[in-house]
């Protein structure tokens, strides 16, 4: 198999995943397209450095993130507002106990069936609202299926940090989804 063929069979199947990753990083479809184009161009040029059969997806994500971070140095993003809003949700109750959402939900829906009732769009929108660090780890783990070690390498953080970000990000997401479920009537919290 030549260089072109191996790139076609190992890298290109991840185009959708890289696009989604780029979309989340950049926050705009147009920027994401440029980011993906640059990512695949760089990946193709560096394809000789890739070890065939290893996880091409996390390798492509790493390139994509590096391209994004270089661009980001030039253009400051408007992330503080979102981060502050989410942190406020976090401090409202999430830092007081290990499993506070579960403790609350347990009275009304102990098995968390409300999660299944929330539409995909609602879940994805809630993920987008997480602070960047938590959002990235939750997406990479729960949506894209990367292993802890792959996420650690990609984000250049220790595996222990991946675990703690996942723990806090999931807990925050559970809180947001629970509030969404109670607001929309998926969970009935008022006694009849």
């Amino acid at each position: 198999m030549d260089r072109n063929e191996s790139f076609q069979s190992e890298a290109l199947p991840h185009l959708d995943a890289v696009y989604r990753f780029a979309l989340r990083l950049s926050g705009s479809a147009a920027d994401a397209e440029d980011l993906v184009q640059e990512t695949f161009l760089r990946a193709f040029r560096a394809w000789d450095q890739y070890t065939p059969g290893t996880r091409a997806k996390s390798w492509l994500f790493t390139i994509c993130r590096n391209v994004f971070l270089r661009q980001r140095k030039r253009e400051r993003r408007r992330e503080e507002t979102v981060r502050d809003a989410a942190a406020e949700v976090d401090t409202k109750g999430l830092q007081t106990g290990e499993i506070p959402v579960f403790t609350t939900a347990y009275q009304y829906d102990p098995e968390g069936q409300f999660f299944a009732a929330i539409v995909d769009g609602g879940i994805l929108a809630a993920i987008e609202r997480l602070p960047d660090d938590f959002r990235d780890t939750v997406i990479l783990s729960d949506l894209e299926g990367l292993a802890y070690a792959e996420i650690a390498e990609l984000l250049d953080i220790p595996v222990g940090t991946v675990k703690s970000r996942l723990f806090r990000g999931r807990r925050l997401l559970q809180q947001v989804l629970y509030e969404y479920a109670t607001d929309t009537g998926y969970v009935h919290t008022n006694p009849q």
Partner: peptide, 10 residues
């Protein structure tokens, strides 16, 4: 249940 919902949403 939480993770099943996320995997489904993926």
């Amino acid at each position: 249940s939480f993770q099943d919902a996320l995997h489904r949403a993926a």
